[in-house]
């Protein structure tokens, strides 16, 4: 039913109900109401890429903050709405833990090495210096505890990037 393509855009089809528009000509205030019900960063980004009117309307509202994704044991990623983001095989191989936000995943490998990857584009990992033992322990602890839920005294690990990973030689602090 939803795939019945009856293009009313510029077609002026039979009904004169909504002023002859079509979804691309949805009045801005109505699209705003729809946007309020699309809290996912990904949905909002994709909505902006549908057509010019939607892009212009949607750009008037700031994007919601990207929320962390959940990495599943089978290597998949889901957003907090439970929608699959995309399978990310990089997360499966010899990776001990992973923190992912937006298009960036911070990986701790079995050999205690660390790297940053874009889990979606499959870009090659950017190796990082080995973490100091204490930091590594903190990351481990935070993961352990988040699973048991028994202890909320989490260690916070933060990675700061000076630029996108796509740029040559980004500055990274952990």
């Amino acid at each position: 039913m939803f795939c019945s393509v009856s293009n009313r855009y510029g077609g002026g089809a039979g009904e004169d109900g909504g002023g002859g528009g079509g979804a691309s000509e949805l009045p801005a205030e109505l699209l705003d109401l729809v946007l309020l019900r699309l809290p996912s960063h990904a949905d909002r980004v994709r909505l902006r890429a549908v057509c010019r009117p939607w892009r212009a309307d949607a750009q008037r509202q700031a994007l919601p903050p990207p929320l962390p994704w959940l990495a599943l044991r089978d290597g998949g990623l889901v957003d907090l709405d439970g929608a699959a983001v995309r399978s990310a095989p990089a997360l499966r191989e010899g990776v001990r833990s992973c923190l992912a936000v937006d298009n960036l995943a911070f990986l701790v490998h079995d050999d205690c090495g660390c790297s940053l990857v874009n889990p979606l584009s499959g870009s090659p990992a950017t190796p990082l210096p080995h973490l100091a033992d204490a930091v590594l322990q903190a990351v481990e602890d935070s993961n352990m505890r988040s699973y048991t839920g028994a202890n909320i005294q989490l260690a916070v690990a933060k990675v700061i990037l000076s630029s996108l990973l796509d740029f040559p030689d980004p500055l990274i602090a952990a």
Binding site: G22, V34, D43, V50
Partner: peptide
Amino acid sequence: IKGKTPEQNRETFGIVN
């Protein structure tokens, strides 16, 4: 709209790219 690519949304709503 949720969870759809731009192209899928265009198909659903009959929107021209």
